Amino acid sequence: MCSKSSGVLTAVIGLAVAGWGQTAGADTLRLLTWGGYAPDDVIEMFEAETGHTVEVTLSNNEEMIAKLRATAGGGFDLAQPSQDRIAGPQEEFGIYKPIDMSKIDQDKFIPSMLSATMANTTVGGEVYGVPHVWGTSGLVLDTANAGMVEDYTDLCSDEVAGKVSYRLKRPTLIGFAFAMGMDPFAAYGDEAAYTEIMEKVEAKLVECKPNVKTYWGGGDELMGLVRSGEVVASMAWDTGGWKLNADNPDISFVAPASGALGWIDTFVLPAKGQADDAAYDWINFVMQPEIAAKITDAAGNFTASKGADEFVDDALKARYQASFPPEAVDNIKWYPPVPAGLEAIEGGVLDRVKAAN
């Protein structure tokens, strides 16, 4: 996922750790997930309601894929990689098993997120992932001084000259492409078409360079720039914008007119999982709005549970609903898997923008 630490953390909750190659009982759910996605109180409620026992191993995308590759999909019953880490590893390593959608309570999901994730995780006609926790990058604005900024390309307007910041990373390339009326994701399968899009984005970013106060590298750096008033308009993550809003109501995360850029961490079934029933029970349990709100409170990000925002902390609920009316949620551009070769194209563009005078 985009905004979490990639440090490797490991914790076990419930019974003692079952090693990668050991067998756990059919009533034991071995969950491979991110920090905050399986809070203690949620586990206790699930165990009391279902009779299953939950063992949690905390990890990150790279570690999840490495663990499942090492065992050909064994050792765990449910895992939570990001949606762009599913189709490729499945095609190459066969580490997941298809999801039986008849066992998923689909009515509990935000429809646009469910359909997007199913489409991005379909391999050979089978669905391998459903959405859980998500987040976006978009615009963080001091609305008192940058209220005219509605999309990424507005960062190049004279009204905010010298008070703009964004990262020289691929989300900036993707966001500007969408704001310029192009669809970079639709060109993923055509290297020549993608190169043409990136050339146009490169020209725009070079043109926009005089507007940029600085290219930020870390979230704390950007938050300092915005708090001080040195930057009034930026590309940044939703959670950062909401933190700033808690200090200054004029600062807010805004979903761009062309769509925020979204990541989703999913639920997948490892190929050799032994407790599918417990896995389906967990998915359906945590997607209940009241339960999903507990995960939002623990993780800091919202889930794909429909209506869960009504049950989170009142202040966070107000910030979320102001940033994401339903039409903005449906307009999120979800990152699909990146084909080989595109990162090299993007890297060249970013290097040239950085070097431009």
Rank of each mutant, 00 (worst) to 15 (best):
T10A: 10
V164D: 06
D297V: 07
L9K: 12
G94L: 09
A11V: 12
L78V: 09
A344L: 07
T136G: 07
P337G: 05
G162Q: 10
N284S: 06
D105P: 02
I264F: 00
A299S: 14
F267K: 11
V329G: 02
A26L: 06
E44T: 15
W134G: 13
G241K: 04
D40W: 00
S59I: 08
A356E: 11
R227D: 12
D247Y: 00
Q83E: 11
G7Y: 02
E221R: 00
P81L: 06
P131H: 08
A279M: 05
A66M: 07
V140R: 06
A355I: 08
W263P: 01
A193W: 02
A318W: 01
G35Y: 01
T10Y: 02
P184S: 11
V231S: 05
S157K: 13
D309Q: 14
F324W: 02
V353P: 03
N61L: 05
S305Q: 07
G129L: 02
I43S: 03
K200T: 13
W237Q: 08
K108N: 10
G88P: 01
S228R: 05
K243V: 07
E221G: 10
A233S: 12
Q83M: 09
S6E: 13
D142L: 04
A70R: 13
G341A: 11
G217A: 12
W282Y: 04
G88N: 12
V123S: 02
C156S: 15
I104T: 13
K294Y: 01
Y96A: 11
M1Q: 10
A322K: 14
R227A: 13
E63I: 15
E346R: 11
E207W: 01
K333S: 03
I43C: 02
P81M: 07
L173K: 05
K67E: 13
W34F: 15
P339L: 05
P81C: 12
N120Y: 04
T28F: 00
I13Q: 12
Y188M: 14
W263H: 15
P289C: 06
A203F: 01
D183P: 01
P337R: 06
A279Q: 02
N331I: 06
S157M: 13
Y215C: 04
G75A: 12
G19E: 15
D265V: 04
I291D: 08
Y320Q: 10
I197F: 02
D297P: 00
A144V: 07
D276R: 07
N357L: 05
P81G: 10
A179Y: 01
A193H: 08
F46G: 07
S3E: 13
V232F: 00
D351K: 15
L244N: 07
K213E: 15
P325R: 07
A179M: 03
T195P: 01
T153S: 09
